[in-house]
Design a protein around this nucleic acid. Sequence first.
DNA 1: TGGTAAGTTCGATGATAATCGAACTAAGAG
DNA 2: CTCTTAGTTCGATTATCATCGAACTTACCA
Lengths: 98, 98
Amino acid sequence: MEELEHPDLEKISLEQVLTALGDPTRLEIFRKLLTEGCLPCGALVPGAAKSTTTHHCRVLREAGLTRTKICGTQRLLRVPVEDIESRFPGLLKLVSAG
Amino acid sequence: MEELEHPDLEKISLEQVLTALGDPTRLEIFRKLLTEGCLPCGALVPGAAKSTTTHHCRVLREAGLTRTKICGTQRLLRVPVEDIESRFPGLLKLVSAG
DNA sequence: TGGTAAGTTCGATGATAATCGAACTAAGAG
DNA sequence: CTCTTAGTTCGATTATCATCGAACTTACCA
């Protein structure tokens, strides 16, 4: 079960993370993944065009906020909780609370 | 010494905060205020047009991230640290570290 | 009472980004 | 092999936003 390429979290800037989460759709995706664990791309934004969802998933992945596992025709997204917590301490608590 | 109007922090959404800080210029302003304390509007973005700085200050203020005191012809901005910490726990640590 | 310095407001402009549909790729079922 | 399902890529469109200059307000100083 391979994974898509992901950036080194050490090289991600806080600005990039905040920009990624500053969009309402992506914040909703991120929160959904945090509470529900692991979800396929298609389950993330009900009602949106597939290409739109793909776009948001890419922005989140490139900001280091999600990991994507290739699982047949599906892409399973999850939040790398420990990695994020060590690189951006406070972020997950912030998103979970807000 | 009066203050400009500020929103109730309880009514601010996390999304609004993240959008405000997602811009590189505003993140820089916010960090500068965090480290240097209290600064006039004009000292925040060297080189920018005054109207640009005014714009960014308004976005930050409307997101509850700054308080503005009217001081003669100047507007002195500061970060309401305690208020932010209680409404958005983790945010200040996140910004300070990143 | 000028004059200056600090910000604001307004309208325009340019850049960035969100969204979509259509065509495509890849994997699995029958 | 064919069909379906999941997602990607591409190009176009639209909307949002960052930036600016010009005109204005306000406070303070000489």
